[in-house]
């Protein structure tokens, strides 16, 4: 395969492609900045970056409609930016400040936005899978035509509760898209050491859930698969599985030196399969955008990201009184 060749022939407008380019670039630059702030000690604890996986969320968000829900694991910054959450609020949560989405009380792994239908941000591997099916359960109960994107990784795919959930989602025809972001490493354990068979998209077969494998480095391929999944779920046919083959460039978390794979392996993915560079090439070769156009976009995005970092540094620490708030909800009068 030639370097950076997209696996699908996109039949899309240049505007759409340009938008995907911007959305992916925002995530990449944001994550690089987050990594930098972590290095400066401004972000603490665990911080799991999404660099390399950008096409997954950007492609699927392009297939979603207003009101659809999404839920994911602790590697959640990309999902939040892709569904339209404010970079300032996300970055301020990373730095543990009052203007963060959770007032600084959740951190990188635990962020939510009711407004954007983003239901977290969950720190326990695979816990979000039944939770996502539960969101879909609520949608079906309320007959509102919405679907839920339930993201989890290849590591989570080995948790028992995933299969408990598949079973119930299938019995009850829940409008839930199970998105397996297969980045090939469950922390430091490669898929071939952790998983008895290579294919995760067939894991629903025993429950009668259709699944397909998707090139997660190709944003248009992801979007098209997402549209098929959404159509299936919205028409009342029950859940659908997308195994999206992707790759994370950075370690599992900031403190992971990633010695379980070679530098060459990572470099090869970057050089040949990078989701952003692929779109960039299409934009340039198709003359949909010039080098200068893209440079201007890059500059604009850097500005947004730098502003979010400044915002996150300047936002105040939560007032000490916040220690004692939000433990219990008050009953409505």
């Amino acid at each position: 395969m030639a370097a950076r060749k997209m696996t699908t022939k996109p039949n899309v407008s240049a505007d759409e492609l340009l938008q995907h380019y911007k959305d992916m670039l925002l995530i990449r630059r944001f994550e690089e900045k987050a990594g930098q702030l972590y290095g400066m000690g401004l972000i603490g604890g665990f911080c799991h970056l999404y660099i390399g996986q950008e096409a997954v969320v950007v492609g699927l968000e392009a297939a979603a409609e207003e009101g659809d829900k999404r839920i994911t694991s602790y590697r959640d910054h990309g999902h939040m930016l892709a569904c339209g959450m404010d970079p300032n609020g996300v970055m301020a949560e990373l730095t543990g400040r009052i203007d963060g989405y959770s007032k600084g009380k959740g951190g990188s792994m635990h962020m939510f936005s009711k407004e954007k239908h983003f239901y977290g941000g969950h720190g326990i591997v695979a816990a979000q899978v039944p939770l996502g099916a539960g969101l879909a359960f609520a949608d079906k109960y309320q007959d509102n035509g919405r679907v839920t994107f339930t993201y989890f990784g290849d590591g989570a795919a080995n948790q028992g509760q995933v299969y408990e959930t598949f079973n119930m989602a299938a019995i009850w025809d829940l409008p839930c898209i199970f998105v397996i972001e297969n980045n090939q490493y469950a922390m430091g354990t490669s898929q071939d050491r952790s998983t008895s068979t290579p294919d995760l998209h067939t894991r629903g077969e025993a429950f009668g859930i259709p699944g397909e494998i998707v090139d997660g480095m190709d944003v248009m391929a992801v979007k098209e698969a997402g549209e098929r999944a959404v159509k299936h779920c919205r028409s009342g046919k029950g859940p659908y599985i997308l195994e999206i083959k992707t790759y994370r460039y950075r370690g599992h978390s900031m403190s992971d030196p990633a010695k379980y794979r070679t530098r060459e392996e990572v470099q090869k993915m970057r050089d040949e399969r990078d989701p952003i560079e692929q779109v960039r090439d299409v934009l340039l070769t198709g003359k949909h955008a010039s080098e200068d156009d893209l440079k201007a976009i890059d500059k604009e995005i850097k500005k947004v990201v730098n502003a979010s970092a400044e915002f996150a540094k300047e936002s105040a620490l939560p007032d000490v009184s916040e220690l004692w708030t939000d433990i219990y909800a008050e009953a409505e009068a």
């Binding site: 829900k69 839920i71 899978v129 939770l131 099916a133 028992g160 408990e164 959930t165 119930m168």
Partner: peptide, 21 residues
């Protein structure tokens, strides 16, 4: 009626509560 799968249905119920039920 649920299958015998406490971990799973408890999680689904929590998700349903996030979803307004």
């Amino acid at each position: 009626d649920t299958p015998i799968t406490e971990h799973g249905f408890a999680g689904i119920a929590v998700g349903a509560s996030f979803g307004g039920l």
